[in-house]
Simulated assay, not measured.
Amino acid sequence: MKLEQIDTPAALIDIARMQKNIARMQGHMNTLGVAFRPHVKTTKCIDVVRAQIAAGARGITVSTLKEAEAFYAAGVDDILYAVSIAPSKLPRALALRRQGCNLKLVVDNPTAAAAIAAFGDQHGASFEVWIEVDTDGHRSGITPEHESLLDVGRILHENGMTVGGVMTHAGSSYELDTAEALAALAEQERAGCVRAAQRLREAGIACPEVSVGSTPTALAAAQLEGVTEVRAGVYVLFDLVMHNIGVCSLEDIALSVLATVIGHQADKGWAILDAGWMAMSRDRGTSNQAHDFGYGQPCLLNGTPLAGYVVSGANQEHGILSSADEGSRADSQDITQRFPIGMKLRILPNHACSTGAQFPEYHAVTPDGHSVQWMRFHGW
């Protein structure tokens, strides 16, 4: 199917750009001498994950048990569930392990560790558990020197569970925009996670894996001594937030939303699109960055960005394309002539994960402009 034939709004993946992004990240990991475990929550798509594995990825990272179940059913068996597990979800985790899935769980507190140990004892089961480490104060995890790190390790180790490793995510990298700051945070992330593993080992608790990663720090890392694997997710598609951080160009962004011009408010300098926030998502991640892209950057059908324009507003099913300069208004005649009714555009998103989540499928676009459908997983 050609792009002109696809009903809108629709999520598009540019296959050539995606493959380039995969090769770039995998090549960097190979150079640094570490394994790469992509975070698949960005795409939740087996076709994308197969391309990542074919390039050299070892295992995957997921954010929901639904992803773990779906990817295991599709043939992927080395899975890290990288969210501290709620005790109520342990039966599902055990079912996956008993089916043969090499599922690894994550905890960041003694209460959750004790719940896993008690559940394992009750059901005669042993889980591999990784401990989440906080290396930048971003969200969750145990700081490398905190006493509870060893408490968690001992609860697991002394109750028949396997401490498979430590993992961290430097999510504060999304707030940076210079190469120097990203490189410094990448080293902070590495050093903190390696230190946590060292403390566990010194306490007699085996900790074979040291896992770090976010897309910005993975790409910025100059050396990863002591690290065994890296995780990153959004790199496979990139987005406008990543562009503003400085780790990709607009031409690297592989995800876009296909939209159609359905009307005008010529006196306001607006073209109205059939892609509102239900298509683009409400994520305004660039609003706090140096360049605010509104709800997305419009491009021609061939992917060329339309300089000077932005999707400045959005209702549920309506998007507003206007001048990117808030102080000016597009000429009424220019807006109607340049964007006639029925014209199709591609909109680059702020956040690939949240925009992708609006769609049940992707239209994967080949270099010759044809597309095939790739299904996407939903739910928890």
Score class of each variant (00 low, 15 high):
Y174G: 07
Q19I: 06
L301H: 06
V194S: 02
Q358K: 07
L219M: 11
G308H: 02
R346P: 03
I205A: 06
E202M: 09
I60H: 10
D292H: 10
A74I: 11
A324C: 06
Q316F: 10
T355K: 00
E132Q: 15
T336G: 03
A266K: 07
F119E: 00
E225D: 10
A266V: 08
V210S: 04
I79Y: 07
I46M: 15
I347G: 02
R199M: 04
G171P: 01
L345R: 06
G27D: 12
Q223M: 07
I262Q: 11
G294Q: 07
G213Y: 05
E189K: 10
V227S: 11
E202N: 08
I245P: 08
G213D: 03
G379A: 05
D121S: 13
Q5E: 14
L273Y: 04
G164V: 01
A222N: 11
P38H: 07
G285R: 09
P91R: 01
A54M: 08
S312I: 14
M278W: 10
T355G: 02
I53G: 03
I15G: 02
R139N: 10
R139D: 08
R24K: 12
S354K: 09
M375S: 12
Q333C: 10
V49D: 05
K268P: 00
L306F: 05
C101V: 02
H123V: 00
G263Y: 05
I262V: 15
L348Q: 12
M161H: 00
H363R: 13
I253M: 04
D331Y: 01
A11T: 12
G263R: 07
D78L: 13
R17C: 06
R346L: 13
A357S: 15
I253F: 09
S312K: 13
G233A: 11
I116H: 00
L255I: 08
N102W: 01
R58E: 12
A191Q: 12
S256L: 06
D267V: 12
A259Y: 09
I262Y: 01
T61Q: 01
E4Y: 06
L255E: 11
E145M: 09
L258A: 08
A125G: 00
A352V: 11
E361A: 15
G33P: 10
T31N: 09
V230L: 13
G294M: 10
Y81F: 15
Y72P: 07
G303Q: 09
K344Q: 15
I15K: 13
A70F: 05
R139A: 09
T162E: 00
G120Y: 00
A279F: 03
Q26F: 10
Y295A: 14
D267T: 11
R231S: 11
E147Q: 15
T178D: 09
M343V: 03
T43S: 15
T162K: 00
V247H: 06
H138G: 11
F339Y: 13
Y295S: 09
I53P: 02
